[in-house]
């Protein structure tokens, strides 16, 4: 079910004629990422393979320093795998690009551009005329419900508003996938809940593939279709859990038996990891 806003946007922006359902397949194929060499060598990600279907919402869950952000960065194209390869829609990723929208943990709006200019930046780079850029930016501002603050600078906005603009900015390029690196980590608990709901709404409207990195178990369960749990040193996926909770999700589900059972499972995986890490340090 698509609202007027999005279908209008698709009309102006869609470059390919391919069906939206076929967009946004991610394949992480035997990827290892190693930093440094010799005694300082650090295996951030070890021979990891993940397949994500178009439109899927996948959370990578793990303790800090487990390489989950590094893995996401390899999909974004910031980090080159030491071996293996990453494909999005069967194209090998070699560098960052507008086909993969990125939302960061730190506030990453351009502070010298207004909210409107921030969102219009991607379309502008893509070569759209100023009036097209304007209409795209306005469309997305309306979508996130922030039309009123179009002319504000990011510094004037709350953290939650800034991240909403960040999401809109990433989506304004009509990317194949949306990559999110702990985007709500810096927000207070209340705002975070609202942002999670807001994100799910945007996701269901766009049907876009989302790869979302977090260390918050509740967040992962609330958002995801699938949770991949990563272990640290070396980083690799140790569990692939299906989240069977029905959609649309509501915060009340957090007390349901399925939710609690899933949370226990996630926590036991993470606890086993932490214990292992703890003992390794102990020896």
């Amino acid at each position: 079910m698509k609202t007027g806003v999005v279908s209008m946007h698709e009309k102006i922006f869609r470059k390919e004629t391919s069906d939206a359902k076929e967009r946004g397949k991610i394949e992480i194929d035997e990827v290892s990422i190693v930093f440094g060499s010799g005694p300082t060598e650090n295996i951030a990600v070890q021979e990891t393979s993940i397949n994500i279907s178009p439109g899927e919402f996948v959370c990578i869950l793990g303790p800090s320093g487990c390489g989950k952000s590094t893995l996401l960065n390899s999909v974004a194209g910031y980090v080159k795998p030491s071996s293996g390869r990453v494909l999005v829609d069967n194209e090998v990723i070699t560098e960052p690009g507008p086909d993969r929208g990125m939302v960061f943990q730190q506030y990453s709006l351009f502070p010298w551009k207004t909210v409107h200019q921030n969102i219009a930046f991607g379309p502008k780079l893509a070569g759209y005329t100023p009036s097209q850029c304007d209409s795209i930016a306005s469309t997305f501002l309306a979508m996130i419900g922030l039309s009123k603050i179009a002319k504000s600078f990011p510094g004037e906005l709350s953290g939650g508003m800034q991240q909403r603009v960040g999401i809109a900015r990433a989506l304004a390029n009509y990317p194949r996938v949306l990559l999110m690196d702990e985007p709500f980590g810096a927000l207070d608990a209340q705002t975070r809940l609202m942002m999670q709901e807001s994100l799910l709404n945007i996701w269901s409207e766009f049907g876009i593939t989302v790869l979302f990195v977090t260390h918050d178990v509740d967040e992962a369960i609330f958002l995801a279709d699938r949770i991949l749990i990563m272990s640290s040193s070396p980083g690799s996926v140790i569990a692939d859990l299906n989240v069977a909770l029905e959609r649309p999700r509501s915060p009340e589900m957090a007390t349901s038996t399925e939710f609690v059972a899933l949370k226990k499972e996630c926590l036991s995986h993470i606890r086993a990891q932490s214990l292992k890490a703890f003992e390794e340090v102990g020896h």
Partner: peptide, 12 residues
């Protein structure tokens, strides 16, 4: 800030 450079690059 490096994150702003990264953001710009990912926007094309």
């Amino acid at each position: 800030p490096e994150v702003l450079v990264r953001a710009a690059v990912s926007l094309g």
